[in-house]
Protein backbone atom coordinates (compact mmCIF):
# COMPACT_ATOMS: atom_id res chain seq x y z
CA UNK A 1 0.00 0.00 0.00
CA UNK A 2 1.35 3.40 -1.01
CA UNK A 3 0.45 6.64 0.71
CA UNK A 4 0.70 9.95 -1.09
CA UNK A 5 -0.72 13.41 -0.62
CA UNK A 6 -3.00 15.09 -3.12
CA UNK A 7 -3.82 18.73 -2.37
CA UNK A 8 -2.89 18.14 1.22
CA UNK A 9 -5.07 15.07 1.64
CA UNK A 10 -3.19 11.88 2.41
CA UNK A 11 -4.59 8.83 0.63
CA UNK A 12 -3.66 5.17 0.39
CA UNK A 13 -3.74 3.21 -2.87
CA UNK A 14 -2.24 0.04 -4.27
CA UNK A 15 1.00 0.06 -6.26
CA UNK A 16 0.54 0.63 -9.94
CA UNK A 17 -2.33 3.07 -9.50
CA UNK A 18 -1.95 6.33 -11.40
CA UNK A 19 -2.40 9.71 -9.75
CA UNK A 20 -5.61 10.27 -11.70
CA UNK A 21 -7.13 6.96 -10.62
CA UNK A 22 -6.13 7.66 -7.03
CA UNK A 23 -7.62 11.15 -7.11
CA UNK A 24 -10.90 10.08 -8.69
CA UNK A 25 -11.30 7.20 -6.27
CA UNK A 26 -11.55 9.67 -3.42
CA UNK A 27 -13.48 12.46 -5.04
CA UNK A 28 -10.65 14.78 -6.07
CA UNK A 29 -11.52 16.33 -9.41
CA UNK A 30 -9.04 16.52 -12.26
CA UNK A 31 -10.33 17.40 -15.73
CA UNK A 32 -9.58 15.05 -18.60
CA UNK A 33 -10.39 14.73 -22.27
CA UNK A 34 -8.43 11.84 -23.74
CA UNK A 35 -8.88 9.58 -20.71
CA UNK A 36 -11.40 6.79 -20.30
CA UNK A 37 -11.42 4.50 -17.25
CA UNK A 38 -11.87 1.35 -19.33
CA UNK A 39 -9.23 2.12 -22.01
CA UNK A 40 -5.45 2.42 -21.73
CA UNK A 41 -4.23 5.91 -20.94
CA UNK A 42 -2.90 8.01 -23.83
CA UNK A 43 -1.53 11.14 -22.22
CA UNK A 44 -2.06 13.35 -25.23
CA UNK A 45 -4.50 16.06 -24.21
CA UNK A 46 -2.33 16.97 -21.18
CA UNK A 47 -5.37 18.47 -19.46
CA UNK A 48 -4.97 16.19 -16.47
CA UNK A 49 -1.51 17.70 -15.79
CA UNK A 50 -0.63 18.10 -12.13
CA UNK A 51 2.42 19.27 -10.25
CA UNK A 52 4.35 16.62 -8.36
CA UNK A 53 7.07 17.11 -5.82
CA UNK A 54 9.50 14.27 -5.28
CA UNK A 55 12.83 14.50 -3.49
CA UNK A 56 12.64 18.26 -3.53
CA UNK A 57 12.11 18.48 -7.30
CA UNK A 58 8.87 19.88 -8.63
CA UNK A 59 7.64 19.10 -12.12
CA UNK A 60 4.50 18.98 -14.15
CA UNK A 61 3.35 15.53 -15.24
CA UNK A 62 0.17 14.01 -16.63
CA UNK A 63 -1.76 12.30 -13.85
CA UNK A 64 -3.36 9.71 -16.12
CA UNK A 65 0.02 8.04 -16.64
CA UNK A 66 2.16 8.97 -13.65
CA UNK A 67 2.31 6.08 -11.18
CA UNK A 68 1.90 6.83 -7.50
CA UNK A 69 5.01 6.65 -5.35
CA UNK A 70 5.42 6.54 -1.59
CA UNK A 71 5.43 10.03 -0.18
CA UNK A 72 4.61 11.75 -3.45
CA UNK A 73 3.17 15.22 -3.08
CA UNK A 74 0.67 16.24 -5.72
CA UNK A 75 -0.90 19.61 -6.40
CA UNK A 76 -3.84 19.53 -8.76
CA UNK A 77 -4.71 23.20 -8.66
CA UNK A 78 -1.54 25.19 -8.30
CA UNK A 79 -1.21 28.36 -10.33
CA UNK A 80 1.27 26.65 -12.62
CA UNK A 81 -1.14 23.82 -13.32
CA UNK A 82 -4.11 26.10 -13.87
CA UNK A 83 -2.12 28.26 -16.24
CA UNK A 84 -1.16 25.20 -18.23
CA UNK A 85 -4.76 23.95 -18.36
CA UNK A 86 -5.94 27.33 -19.55
CA UNK A 87 -3.25 27.32 -22.22
CA UNK A 88 -4.31 23.89 -23.41
CA UNK A 89 -8.00 24.65 -23.49
CA UNK A 90 -7.33 27.90 -25.34
CA UNK A 91 -5.53 25.90 -28.02
CA UNK A 92 -8.34 23.36 -28.19
CA UNK A 93 -10.99 26.05 -28.31
CA UNK A 94 -9.11 27.52 -31.25
CA UNK A 95 -9.10 24.17 -32.99
CA UNK A 96 -12.66 23.04 -32.18
CA UNK A 97 -14.70 26.09 -31.25
CA UNK A 98 -18.03 24.37 -31.85
CA UNK A 99 -17.57 21.43 -29.52
CA UNK A 100 -19.86 21.64 -26.51
CA UNK A 101 -17.52 19.64 -24.37
CA UNK A 102 -14.59 21.95 -25.13
CA UNK A 103 -16.74 25.00 -24.55
CA UNK A 104 -17.87 23.67 -21.20
CA UNK A 105 -14.31 22.95 -20.14
CA UNK A 106 -13.20 26.38 -21.28
CA UNK A 107 -15.90 28.00 -19.25
CA UNK A 108 -14.97 25.90 -16.24
CA UNK A 109 -11.35 27.01 -16.56
CA UNK A 110 -12.21 30.63 -17.15
CA UNK A 111 -11.06 30.88 -20.74
CA UNK A 112 -13.24 33.13 -22.77
CA UNK A 113 -12.11 33.89 -26.26
CA UNK A 114 -8.96 32.36 -27.72
CA UNK A 115 -6.30 34.77 -28.93
CA UNK A 116 -5.76 32.86 -32.12
CA UNK A 117 -7.63 32.82 -35.35
CA UNK A 118 -10.57 30.45 -35.24
CA UNK A 119 -10.13 27.09 -36.86
CA UNK A 120 -12.87 24.61 -37.66
CA UNK A 121 -11.85 21.11 -36.83
CA UNK A 122 -14.23 18.62 -35.28
CA UNK A 123 -11.69 16.15 -34.05
CA UNK A 124 -9.24 16.86 -31.22
CA UNK A 125 -7.15 13.74 -31.90
CA UNK A 126 -7.70 12.41 -28.40
CA UNK A 127 -7.35 8.88 -29.75
CA UNK A 128 -10.27 7.46 -27.78
CA UNK A 129 -11.89 6.04 -30.89
CA UNK A 130 -8.60 4.46 -31.94
CA UNK A 131 -8.18 2.84 -28.56
CA UNK A 132 -11.75 1.58 -28.50
CA UNK A 133 -11.23 -0.03 -31.88
CA UNK A 134 -7.96 -1.60 -30.71
CA UNK A 135 -8.88 -2.63 -27.19
CA UNK A 136 -12.63 -3.13 -27.12
CA UNK A 137 -13.72 -4.43 -30.49
CA UNK A 138 -10.09 -5.43 -31.19
CA UNK A 139 -10.65 -4.78 -34.86
CA UNK A 140 -7.78 -2.29 -35.23
CA UNK A 141 -9.61 -0.48 -37.99
CA UNK A 142 -8.82 3.06 -36.93
CA UNK A 143 -5.47 4.69 -36.41
CA UNK A 144 -3.68 7.98 -36.75
CA UNK A 145 -2.28 8.90 -40.11
CA UNK A 146 0.13 11.65 -41.01
CA UNK A 147 2.17 13.73 -38.67
CA UNK A 148 1.89 16.99 -36.76
CA UNK A 149 -0.95 19.35 -37.42
CA UNK A 150 -2.06 17.32 -40.44
CA UNK A 151 -2.56 14.27 -38.26
CA UNK A 152 -5.99 12.72 -38.50
CA UNK A 153 -7.84 9.57 -37.60
CA UNK A 154 -8.65 7.31 -40.50
CA UNK A 155 -9.19 3.76 -41.60
CA UNK A 156 -6.84 2.14 -44.12
CA UNK A 157 -6.90 3.95 -47.46
CA UNK A 158 -9.62 6.27 -46.11
CA UNK A 159 -12.18 3.63 -47.04
CA UNK A 160 -15.16 2.98 -44.77
CA UNK A 161 -13.89 -0.05 -42.89
CA UNK A 162 -15.73 -3.14 -44.09
CA UNK A 163 -14.84 -5.16 -41.03
CA UNK A 164 -16.43 -2.70 -38.66
CA UNK A 165 -18.73 -4.55 -36.27
CA UNK A 166 -20.75 -1.40 -35.59
CA UNK A 167 -20.21 -1.62 -31.84
CA UNK A 168 -20.73 2.13 -31.64
CA UNK A 169 -17.93 2.44 -29.09
CA UNK A 170 -16.09 5.06 -31.14
CA UNK A 171 -19.12 7.34 -31.35
CA UNK A 172 -19.92 6.73 -27.69
CA UNK A 173 -16.52 7.82 -26.40
CA UNK A 174 -15.90 10.67 -28.83
CA UNK A 175 -15.86 13.86 -26.74
CA UNK A 176 -16.65 16.20 -29.63
CA UNK A 177 -19.19 14.19 -31.54
CA UNK A 178 -16.92 13.99 -34.57
CA UNK A 179 -18.06 10.42 -35.03
CA UNK A 180 -21.75 10.00 -35.58
CA UNK A 181 -23.97 6.98 -36.01
CA UNK A 182 -25.77 6.95 -39.33
CA UNK A 183 -27.95 3.97 -40.20
CA UNK A 184 -26.45 2.00 -37.38
CA UNK A 185 -22.87 2.40 -38.61
CA UNK A 186 -20.30 4.96 -37.54
CA UNK A 187 -19.74 7.89 -39.85
CA UNK A 188 -16.30 9.39 -39.58
CA UNK A 189 -14.92 12.85 -40.09
CA UNK A 190 -12.83 11.93 -43.09
CA UNK A 191 -15.89 10.52 -44.81
CA UNK A 192 -17.75 13.78 -44.27
CA UNK A 193 -14.74 15.76 -45.44
CA UNK A 194 -14.52 13.61 -48.53
CA UNK A 195 -18.18 14.20 -49.21
CA UNK A 196 -17.73 17.89 -48.66
CA UNK A 197 -14.73 18.12 -50.97
CA UNK A 198 -16.58 15.92 -53.44
CA UNK A 199 -19.41 18.42 -53.40
CA UNK A 200 -16.94 21.21 -53.93
CA UNK A 201 -15.37 19.53 -56.91
CA UNK A 202 -18.60 18.28 -58.33
Amino acid sequence: MITLTIDGKEIGVTEGTTILEAARMFGIEIPTLCYHPVLSAHGSCRLCSVEVVQRGWSRVVVSCLYPVAQGLEVKTNSERVLRLRRGIIELLLTRCPDSERIQALAQQLGVDKPRFERDEHECILCGLCVRVCHEVSEKHLLNFVDRGFEKEVAAPFYEPPEECIACGGCAYVCPTGAIRIVDGKPEFLWQRNKQRSGEKDG
Binding site: V136, S137, C167, G168, A171, Y172, I181
Partner: peptide, 11 residues
Protein backbone atom coordinates in the same frame (compact mmCIF):
# COMPACT_ATOMS: atom_id res chain seq x y z
CA UNK B 1 -28.96 6.79 -22.29
CA UNK B 2 -27.33 7.95 -25.54
CA UNK B 3 -28.39 5.49 -28.20
CA UNK B 4 -24.81 5.31 -29.44
CA UNK B 5 -23.24 2.36 -27.73
CA UNK B 6 -23.89 -1.24 -28.58
CA UNK B 7 -20.52 -2.69 -27.72
CA UNK B 8 -21.82 -5.61 -25.67
CA UNK B 9 -24.34 -6.59 -28.30
CA UNK B 10 -21.80 -6.55 -31.11
CA UNK B 11 -19.06 -8.18 -29.08
Amino acid sequence: TTGLCQVCSQI
